[in-house]
C-alpha cells in the first residue's frame, strides 16, 4: 500500500501538471490544423510556399500563445 500524503506542495504540483495537460489540448489541435491546411495549400500549389510560410508561422505563434499563458501561470504559481 502506497501512502500518498496530501501536502500543499504535492497538491500544487499535481494541479500544475493537470493544468498544463488540459491547456495543451487546444493549442495542439490549433497548431495541427494550421499546419495541415498549409500543407494542403502547398500541395495544391507548390509555388505558394514562400507566401504561405510567414503567415503560417504567425498563426501558429498566436495559437501557441494560449499554451504560453498556462505555462506562465504555472511558473508563477
Amino acid at each position: 500500500m502506497i501512502e500518498i500524503s496530501l501536502t500543499d506542495h504535492t497538491v500544487l504540483a499535481s494541479a500544475q501538471a493537470i493544468a498544463m495537460g488540459i491547456g495543451a489540448i487546444g493549442p495542439g489541435l490549433g497548431i495541427g490544423l494550421i499546419g495541415a491546411k498549409a500543407m494542403e495549400a502547398i500541395g495544391r500549389n507548390p509555388q505558394s510556399l514562400g507566401k504561405l510560410f510567414v503567415p503560417m508561422i504567425l498563426g501558429m505563434a498566436l495559437a501557441e500563445s494560449i499554451a504560453i499563458y498556462v505555462m506562465v501561470i504555472i511558473l508563477k504559481g
Partner: peptide, 13 residues
Amino acid sequence: IILGIRLFGNISA
C-alpha cells in the same frame, strides 16, 4: 504584454 511573454516563455521553457 503577450508579445513579450511569448518570447520569454518559449526561450525559458
